Amino acid sequence: MSRHSAGKSGIALTEKQRIAWLRLIRSDNVGPATFRDLINNFGTAERALEMLPELSQRGGATRAIRIATKDEAERELEFCTKFGAVFVGIGEPHYPPALRQIDAAPPILAMKGNGATAIRPSIGIVGSRNASISGVKMATLLARDCGAAGYTITSGLARGIDTAAHNASLATGTMAAMAGGLDQPYPPENIGLLKAIWDGRGVAISEMPFGWEPRARDFPRRNRLIAGTSLGVAVIEAASRSGSLITARLAADFGRLVFAVPGSPMDPRCHGTNTLLKNGSIVTTEALDLLEALSPLSNIDLFAQPQVEEPAYEESETFHQPPGDVERSMVIDALGPTPVEVNDIIRHTQLSPSSVYLVMLELDIAGRLQRHPGGLVSLSFAD
């Protein structure tokens, strides 16, 4: 990764780079963390694409890796343009600045609407889908007042609290994080709300391909977008097992402030929020609670170094020599089903960090490595 600063203007991808980035992130076994490691090791997405078959083979893959074609990427880019959306890379001006600071941030986002809304300081507001009248009122008050104070209000376009938060901040600026492609909104009854977001001062973002229908496992990724784009997340009416608590946990992991609105202990919808309060979340009864706590954070330069950046000149690319069979075996033997820190693998094997990271990249591309929260890794034994 290049260490020079992108600056507030950002660094625009060329059309050639954008297509290569799309191909890379749409290829098998390439997630955000793997994408970052590939760019770090091979300099450009084009070079990384060339290396995928060799990496997969060295990692012990039992079948050929599927690599997204140039035609596929060009078709998706063409669909995106016709849809009135854009693909924004992590170092580009309209990429949400707080999101680029998290570990393994999405390298590229599909975005439709007012791009300026995406780069303002954001507050996430989430909660129950079957919200009470008082919960909806509280979401409306918080979103309206925080929006009037200059914050973008980010939520997940779900029923209940999310819908109330978006509606209350349409006039000031709201951001909808989506679990499926931008053309696959969920739930269907919020299609009208989504169009109002696009047509006004709002914006919608997704890391999923166009045409991707959201599945249950996609919603935690959507929650990660909410937590990552926000300086703080307010939770209103969350049950003990809910997506809102996932968002709150992710926000805490990212070093963001977590706010919770207290509720009746007799209401199951409030069990999760009350538990958050017991565990140290900030008691929230009005917008001022959020605004005062977030005020010092709003001056932080969020336009710092992006996590993934291609070097300006191909001559600056440096490629590590592939590790030998002995080194590869040492790393594989050190791994198991229990997640461990990469530094522990380096200490245990006494190999160079570059060798250990490259072996893990081979295993990752081959589908044999599992990544876990906190940067932990384990060996996958799935077929």
Rank of each mutant, 00 (worst) to 15 (best):
G272S: 06
G272C: 05
G272D: 04
T273N: 09
T273L: 07
N274C: 08
T275G: 13
T275V: 11
T275P: 05
L277M: 06
L277H: 08
S281H: 04
V283I: 15
T284I: 03
T284A: 07
T284Q: 06
T284C: 10
T285L: 14
T285C: 11
E286L: 01
E286A: 05
A287K: 01
A287W: 04
A287S: 08
L288Q: 15
L288S: 14
D289M: 06
D289Y: 02
D289P: 04
L290K: 06
L291C: 07
L291H: 04
E292V: 15
A293V: 08
L294Q: 03
L294C: 09
L294F: 01
S295W: 10
P296T: 02
P296G: 05
N299E: 13
N299C: 12
N299G: 10
N299I: 14
D301K: 03
L302N: 05
F303Q: 08
A304I: 05
Q305C: 10
P306Y: 12
Q307F: 07
E310M: 11
Y313E: 14
E314R: 11
E315H: 12
S316H: 08
S316P: 03
S316Q: 12
E317I: 15
T318Y: 10
F319N: 13
F319C: 14
F319M: 15
Q321P: 11
P322K: 03
P322L: 09
P323T: 04
D325C: 01
V326K: 13
V326S: 13
R328Y: 01
S329K: 01
V331K: 02
V331E: 04
V331G: 04
A334L: 10
A334K: 03
L335D: 00
G336R: 09
P337I: 13
P337R: 13
P337E: 13
P337Q: 13
T338V: 15
V340G: 06
V340D: 08
E341C: 10
N343D: 14
D344P: 00
D344F: 08
I346H: 00
H348A: 12
H348E: 14
H348V: 10
T349V: 00
Q350P: 06
Q350Y: 07
L351D: 02
S352I: 10
P353L: 05
S354M: 12
V356A: 11
V356K: 08
Y357I: 07
L358C: 10
M360C: 14
M360Y: 04
E362S: 08
L363R: 02
L363N: 01
D364F: 11
D364T: 14
A366T: 00
G367F: 01
R368M: 10
